[in-house]
Nucleic acid binder design. Structure first.
Lengths: 129, 129
DNA sequence: TATTAACTTGAAGTCAGCTCCAAGTTAATA
DNA sequence: TATTAACTTGGAGCTGACTTCAAGTTAATA
């Protein structure tokens, strides 16, 4: 699969895909005889995973570390798992924070609604001044 | 209240606080005769709100716009509310995405646990090779 | 076969959001 | 009063994460 197809599939630019590979965010992709990248489904699995993690705010450094360890084989099993656990916990925490921010924002929006209704009431029932 | 006290209270550097004020992320803070910032509780309310929003990933641009409109008075009521609604929706969406990423990560971590248990079983019950 | 589109590399450029610095001023402490 | 700590400004520098560029190569189409 050519880079252009992968771009379309994951809505990433070719530059971003090459950048990801260059910095080790995804394992090296095999090439054709001509030297062009030839993506497999396996590569796409990585891209999907990395894109999902990046979208959740996981830093590139944590992910390159994970990919590096993955390349070192079974002996890094535990270390890899620790990275996932750490990031999982971070995301869980972030959800909690976002939840309370959401509540706060909803309260603020409600106040805006109330003030607006009051303002409308004033229009309907003009006070003497 | 001096800038150092505010820094401590919100765990922000003085540089960040001055930067926030310079770009209009919080309204202008009053000064002492000597020209030093003299924060009030009102200022702190803004800082708390802005810090919370930034922490939730709300972009500086949306917040400076909000502060600007606030300074323009009641006639911007509706426009300000729209900003809050838009960001609220964005945050709600982000929570959903994070939730599904969390589920995905948990599944992956579980697989790591399973493989690890299998590996342990192998140690206990060595297969002939 | 010739043109054109898609690809290659390494390096430089961009953007958001701070963060640090120099040079000077104000306020607090010995 | 003298020193020192905290503050002021404008501007330069930094970091993470891309994004663009130049100069060339490969593959697909007329």
């Amino acid at each position: 699969m050519m880079i252009s197809e992968v771009c379309e599939r994951f809505d990433l630019t070719a530059d971003t895909l090459r950048y990801y590979e260059r910095i080790g965010l995804i394992p090296k992709v095999n090439r054709t005889e001509g030297g062009m990248r030839d993506y497999t489904e396996y590569d796409c699995g990585w891209i999907d995973f990395i894109k999902c993690m990046r979208n959740a705010g996981v830093q590139i450094e944590a992910l390159t570390e994970y990919v590096k360890l993955f390349g070192e084989g079974d002996k890094t099993h535990e270390e890899r798992k620790q990275i996932l656990v750490r990031e999982r916990d971070r995301i869980a925490e972030q959800i909690d924070e976002l939840q309370s921010t959401l509540t706060r924002l909803n309260g603020k929006i409600e106040k805006y609604d109330t003030v607006f209704r009051d303002a409308e009431d004033e229009l309907k029932l003009p006070t003497k001044k």
